[in-house]
Design a protein around this nucleic acid. Structure first.
Length: 480
RNA sequence: CGGGGCGUAGCGCAGCUUGGUAGCGCGUCUGGUUCGGGACCAGAAGGCCGUGUGUUCAAAUCACAUCGCCCCGACCA
């Protein structure tokens, strides 16, 4: 029997506390989630990574439908003239827009932007589709890819092309738009916590950090294991800014022509990067059960012995019938090799079934999150497994919450702020002024405001940095 | 756009300082023994040394250029 030891195993993956970026890269490549492509800044999402995205899509899409939205698809290309109609929006996105200038060998009379986001195309269509108050609210979502010509990229976290969903809605009043904006942020929050097992801070973005062209941007922010924050989703109230730029008007009940109030909200494949950095450990991925393409892997032990593979097959059907995503690994590798492999791939539960287990009518189940091993009777196995998957989810969420709490401090002096953002979130009072925000970023080595949380408290009356009257309690952090 | 690092077998790397037959580990393939924490033995296949130009009798190795990738900043989901 070869010596098993962690040292030998972890040689293949960098350790989180020694080199977090390298650990991240090792994990996503070695677990077959992604591969680098021939195009700079673009990634190939391989089946194992795409499987996670499909589960995210399915569960998020159901929530959109439940809140009254329908899916549609709008074009990838945006004529330059159309993109230019909302000044602040253009200014924000112009530096990272990719352009199509030729069709075949012929130069286009007007170049086409490859969508960096679709407010403009959708706005122009809404302008045609919305005529009357009866057409409102208009509640649509699209699943698509967008392109932003990024200068530096990292798989999932920032790529030149990425997959996302963008919801776009139009309403009769500002209040309705605001209500929608908050509703969808609430959907995101619930999704992050109940599906991805990631606790998030929700709140409003500063003027500097808000979406280009929005009246207000709301966000959910999560804390990674290296102390950096990740924006996991945003929801924008555009007020009537885009309605005015794109002429989205309706005739009210009173017969008056009014501008609509619009919203947009989006989440992307970046969430996958987030769940890796929140839950992963030195053995590799730790997938939250609800987005794990394989929730339980069945490993037949001494599989050449009569009855073992048959029993494994029975277990597989039993679990599949109960709606559990399971797989039997009957490859020729040794048991030890498979243990390590599936741990690296983050499968939430491992089920071992060998001759001894069959004799005793039981299986061995090992949880990925705490690696604890237990014997489980064959009878009622599907129920037990489902319960354990839920336990793993809760365990991951609690662990992530503890991580965030241990990396969150309150600051009443600038020195505390400066020190605190080196390790995680800092809550501090802030004046709300962009100039002050930029100075803080400069002096702290890159920490920015993440949001002004809905959950406010009064730490003091003055801004932690400039001493002017405090506007709001604000989360600061270095961010991805 | 600045700073750093790296391109040699499918993957990870050594060789370069001091030019002289292309190496190692893992993986792959064949056969056998194994099988409850990365098994072992024997055999085999696999390379335009990123690309180009130069120096030289001779270049993976030296020079110049170029392309690409990774990491860290600035900018952004």
């Amino acid at each position: 029997m070869a010596k098993n030891n962690d040292q030998e195993f972890v040689k293949h993956i960098a350790k989180r506390d020694e080199d977090f970026p390298q650990w991240y890269t090792d994990v996503i490549l070695k677990t077959d989630m992604v591969d680098y492509s021939d195009v700079k800044g673009c990634m190939v999402i391989k089946p194992y990574g795409y499987g996670v995205w499909e589960l995210i899509q399915a569960q998020m899409d159901r929530r959109f439908k439940d809140t009254g939205h329908v899916n549609a698809y709008f074009p990838l290309f945006i004529p330059e003239s159309l993109l230019l109609k909302e000044a602040e929006h253009v200014e924000g996105f112009a530096p990272e827009v990719a352009w199509v200038t030729h069709g075949g060998s012929e130069k286009l009379t007007e170049r086409l932007a490859i969508r960096p986001t679709s407010e403009t195309v959708i706005g122009s269509m809404y302008s045609k589709w919305i005529q009357s108050y009866r057409d409102l609210p208009m509640l649509m979502n699209q699943w698509c890819n967008v392109v932003r010509w990024e200068k530096s990229t990292r798989p999932f976290l920032r790529t030149s092309e990425f997959l996302w969903q963008e919801g776009h809605t139009a309403h009769a009043t500002f209040d309705e738009a605001q209500e929608e904006t908050m509703r969808m942020l609430g959907v995101y929050r619930e999704f992050a916590q109940n599906v991805l097992a990631i606790p998030v801070v929700t709140g409003r973005k500063s003027e500097k950090e808000k979406f280009a062209g929005a009246y207000a941007t709301y966000t959910m922010e999560a804390m990674m294991q290296d102390g950096k924050a990740l924006q996991m989703g945003t929801s924008h109230n555009m007020a009537d800014n885009f309605a005015k730029g794109y002429d989205i008007q309706y005739l009210s009940r009173e017969g008056k022509l009014e501008y609509c109030f619009t919203t947009s909200w989006g989440t992307s494949t970046r969430m996958i990067g987030g769940l890796i950095m929140v839950h992963g450990d030195d053995r590799g991925l730790v997938l939250p059960p609800r987005v794990a393409p394989i929730q339980a892997v069945i490993l037949p032990i001494a599989q050449h012995k009569p009855g073992v593979l048959e029993k494994a097959g029975e277990l597989l059907h039993m679990l599949n019938d109960a709606g559990i995503r399971a797989k039997v690994d009957d490859s020729e590798q040794s048991a030890g090799w498979k243990f390590n492999q599936w741990e690296m791939k983050g499968v939430p539960l491992r089920i071992e079934i060998g001759p001894k287990d069959i004799e005793q009518n039981q299986v061995v189940v090992v949880r990925r999150d705490d690696l604890k091993k237990q014997f489980v009777p064959m009878e009622g196995l599907a129920n037990t497994i489902q319960g354990m998957l839920d336990d793993v989810h809760r365990g991951l969420f609690d662990k992530a919450l503890k991580l965030r709490e241990s990396r969150t401090v309150d600051a009443t002096t600038f020195e505390q702020l400066r020190e605190g953002v080196q390790h995680g979130f800092v809550r501090a009072m802030w004046c709300g002024e962009t100039a002050c925000e930029m100075e803080i970023k400069e002096k702290t080595g890159g920490a920015s405001t993440r949001c002004m949380p809905f959950e406010q408290k009064q730490l003091s009356d003055v801004c932690v940095h400039c001493g002017k009257p405090a506007h709001a309690l604000t989360y600061f952090a270095k961010a991805y």
